[in-house]
Amino acid sequence: MPITPNQGPSGGGTLVTITGTNLSGTTAVHFGTRSATSVTNVSPTQVTAVSPAGNGAVGVTVTTPGGTSNPVSFFYVGAPFKQSLSPATGTTAGGQTVTINGTGLATASSVAFGANSATPTVVSDSQITVTAPAGTAGSVGVTVTTAGGSNNGLTYTYVADPTLTAIAPTSGPASGGTSVILTGTSLTSTTGVTFGGTPASFGVLSDTSVAVVTPAGAAGAVDVVLTNEAGSDTLDEGYTYLAGPDI
Rank of each mutant, 00 (worst) to 15 (best):
residue 8 G to S: 10
residue 12 G to I: 04
residue 17 T to F: 04
residue 18 I to T: 02
residue 22 N to V: 11
residue 27 T to Q: 11
residue 36 A to S: 07
residue 43 S to K: 01
residue 47 V to F: 01
residue 48 T to Q: 03
residue 67 G to W: 08
residue 72 V to E: 06
residue 75 F to I: 15
residue 76 Y to A: 00
residue 77 V to F: 02
residue 83 Q to S: 14
residue 85 L to Y: 01
residue 86 S to I: 08
residue 86 S to C: 11
residue 91 T to P: 10
residue 91 T to K: 09
residue 93 A to F: 02
residue 102 G to H: 01
residue 106 A to K: 05
residue 109 S to V: 14
residue 110 S to V: 09
residue 111 V to C: 07
residue 114 G to Q: 04
residue 117 S to M: 11
residue 120 P to K: 01
residue 120 P to L: 07
residue 122 V to Y: 03
residue 126 S to V: 07
residue 131 T to L: 14
residue 137 A to I: 06
residue 151 N to T: 09
residue 154 L to M: 07
residue 159 V to M: 10
residue 167 I to M: 04
residue 169 P to N: 10
residue 170 T to F: 12
residue 175 S to Y: 12
residue 181 I to Q: 12
residue 182 L to V: 07
residue 185 T to F: 15
residue 187 L to S: 01
residue 188 T to K: 11
residue 192 G to K: 08
residue 192 G to R: 08
residue 192 G to F: 03
residue 192 G to L: 09
residue 193 V to N: 03
residue 193 V to E: 02
residue 193 V to F: 06
residue 198 T to F: 10
residue 199 P to V: 09
residue 199 P to A: 14
residue 199 P to I: 10
residue 201 S to T: 14
residue 204 V to G: 10
residue 210 V to E: 01
residue 220 G to A: 12
residue 226 L to C: 13
residue 232 S to P: 05
residue 232 S to N: 14
residue 234 T to R: 14
residue 243 A to V: 11
